[in-house]
Write a protein that binds this DNA or RNA. Structure first.
Lengths: 241, 241
DNA sequence: CTCCGACGTCCGCGTTTCGTAAGGAGCGAA
DNA sequence: TTCGCTCCTTACGAAACGCGGACGTCGGAG
């Protein structure tokens, strides 16, 4: 890797490819993004952009619409042909058509010239936040599992899990309260919101959840049974066979 | 209530902090801005500016680059340390370097001396307008969809969509809040503005919107159903069949 | 006035999910 | 080992849910 990585606490926030033929603009933008904690790559024309992208696939592209040789739209199109990548377009002020065209081609946002670098950085962060569910909202994660309460999605090693409501809530509760053992009554109260009911309901749902979450549902590692007590979500403390 | 607040019907259009060591300039600028309907705060040096800003955080700062004691750039930098605020720089004529420097620090615009107060006011309005894009007048897009809230137009892959009012608002809301799951009650509140009502209304409108927006309405990819919860607009980045 | 689009409501239908029951397996103690 | 209790697994009926189609109303355009 190259330079930067400011101590801002964010670490490497992502790789951004800046494509602009105006050295001044490129310099300013790159400087800003660098100071904001991004690893910045630069290109001054279409082919160059594609080459850089091939070498180091960026997390986001800041793309000037007016480019010598290859149109910015064309660059965007080709980039998209290689893989999904967020794009922010730099367009001339007041050129509504260009903006719409850019968005239709697949740009995720646009900034009109002249622009303030501050605004650009804000948009970069906004787009990245939107494109990467891993960051941003208060997400729960442990042992390859991720649970996004806002989006109501859960993944296991990157692949999405098809959980029902109860399963989702149950998993979310476990992730929020790791390492502690909970009786069936507790779970029934916390997850179901009931003060009484058939406790076997909990048992069955735990089993169903295990079937979707555990690598080997027959020998659960995440949702462990605490004999005579209930269950406990353990973030893979130690391996035992 | 404090001073000014012109009766122009617009009320307080925003608070502007004018920082200039030349009393004449400051007086003229402040006068014009006040007459334009802004609440104007003044400071004649860097520390003073920071103090005023701390007392009443401005919506915009008009900042002289040449300041006794603390450099205008430094003031801008420190201001930015406290929070994001648009800045218009006053620079000496023809000083290209200063302009670049100003932009690097994060100025949103610059005006070269000598300037006409009228122009400054115009720029203030322009920057403020630009700095508040979240107010709903910004273009939205995702997955080949384009929504222009200002023009009330929406396109899909370049072709215009014939959306009704409700459908448009619904789509706009989804585009503004991608990746999150919303219950029918939430949508009813956010899009319809109702606190109660038949939730099937939401269901039906989602279906109608799907019919116009989805490639295969029977198998929606954009507006996904979150079973038992509601709906979620997903950009669907990276998923292939 | 009539026609037409938009909107809200309602009603079946197919599907998914839930809760419960019942039998079998596992665990610990005597 | 055997016994007693707990947990697992499976199955199934019922309820909940979402979907599509259709209807009646309202208001604006012709």
């Amino acid at each position: 890797m190259q330079q930067s990585n400011r101590a801002g606490g964010a670490g490497a926030r992502g790789r951004v490819l800046v494509v602009d033929d105006d050295p001044t603009v490129a310099e300013v933008v790159a400087g800003y993004l660098d100071r904001a904690g991004y690893v910045v790559d630069r290109a001054d024309d279409g082919p160059g952009a594609l080459t850089r992208a091939a070498a180091h696939w960026p997390d986001l592209v800041v793309l000037d619409l007016m480019l010598p040789g290859m149109d910015g739209l064309e660059v965007c199109r080709r980039m998209r042909g290689h893989g999904p990548v967020p794009v922010i377009m730099l367009t001339a002020r007041g050129d509504e058509d260009d903006r719409i065209l850019g968005l239709e081609v697949g740009a995720d946002d646009y900034v009109t010239k002249p622009f303030s670098p501050r605004e650009l950085v804000l948009r970069v962060e906004s787009v990245l936040r939107r494109a990467r569910p891993e960051a941003g909202t208060r997400m729960l994660s442990a042992a390859g599992l991720t649970v996004d309460p806002a989006a109501r999605r859960a993944t296991k090693n990157g692949t999405e899990l098809a959980l029902t409501i109860r399963e989702f809530d149950l998993l979310a509760f476990f992730l929020r309260n790791q390492g502690r053992a909970y009786g069936r009554e507790d779970l029934m109260r916390e997850v179901w919101g009931w003060d009484f009911g058939d406790l076997s309901t909990v048992t069955v749902h735990v089993r169903r959840l295990r079937g979707k979450v555990e690598d080997d549902p027959a020998r659960p590692r995440l949702i462990q049974t605490v004999w005579g007590v209930g269950y406990r979500f353990e973030t893979d403390a130690g391996e035992e066979d």
